[in-house]
Amino acid sequence: MSDLLERLRTRGWRLTAQRRVVAEVLDGDHVHLTADEVHARAARLLPEISRATVYNTLGELVTLGEVLEVSTDGRARRYDPNAHHAHQHLVCSHCGTIRDVHPVGDPLAALPAGERFGFTVSDVEVTYRGTCPDCSATAA
């Protein structure tokens, strides 16, 4: 499970009711919600929360480095609370479901020195794509 709420408390980030609800919605494993999805879930817990507050809070969390902004389809930005746990993403090409995965080995080592073109590589992002079990079942 993501430790987002605990990290925010440790940082001393002021947890207003609105911020707390956004953090609660994001907290968990395999959470990759769009801003609109965060707003819809937050509004169930705190009906008066505005879309602007959700967007502003997400922006602050990204700036703090506590939430990652992820785009796997080139359109919808999604928010991943597992910013402090190294992982990659597994994405269903049909429905867009995203799961966190933890491949074994160093993905940086997979790029030969001759293919680095003099770059000092500091980060690697790998996205695995396929078909989830639900989509596979409906296609059968």
Rank of each mutant, 00 (worst) to 15 (best):
A43S: 07
D3L: 05
G65S: 14
I98T: 13
V62G: 04
N56Y: 04
V121Q: 03
R116E: 08
P81M: 10
R78N: 13
R19A: 06
D27V: 07
S50N: 13
R41F: 03
L26N: 05
H94A: 11
E66W: 04
S136K: 03
N56T: 14
P81H: 04
T120S: 14
L64D: 09
E37C: 09
E69V: 13
R9K: 13
E125G: 05
D36C: 01
P107D: 01
P133I: 06
C95D: 07
E37Y: 09
F119P: 05
A139G: 02
P81A: 02
A35C: 09
A23Y: 01
R99K: 10
R75C: 11
L5P: 06
R14Y: 05
E69N: 13
C132I: 09
R41Y: 06
R44E: 12
P133Y: 03
A86Q: 05
R7I: 14
T10V: 10
T127Y: 03
V124P: 06
A137E: 15
L26D: 07
A109T: 14
S2V: 02
T72Y: 03
N82I: 12
L26I: 11
A109N: 01
E69L: 11
H85A: 08
R11E: 14
L33N: 01
C135T: 05
L61G: 07
Q18S: 13
L111N: 10
P133G: 03
S71Y: 01
A83H: 11
I98A: 09
R44Y: 00
A42V: 00
N56I: 12
G74S: 13
R19Q: 04
L61K: 08
E60M: 10
V67N: 15
C95K: 13
A113V: 15
A17F: 00
R116I: 07
A42F: 02
L108W: 09
R77S: 15
L68V: 07
D36L: 12
Q88M: 14
H94D: 11
R129T: 15
E24A: 11
R11L: 15
E37G: 13
A139E: 07
H84I: 09
H30K: 12
Y55Q: 06
R77L: 11
A109L: 15
E66G: 12
G114A: 14
L58S: 00
G118F: 08
T127K: 10
C135E: 00
M1C: 05
R51G: 08
V121H: 01
E37Q: 15
E48A: 14
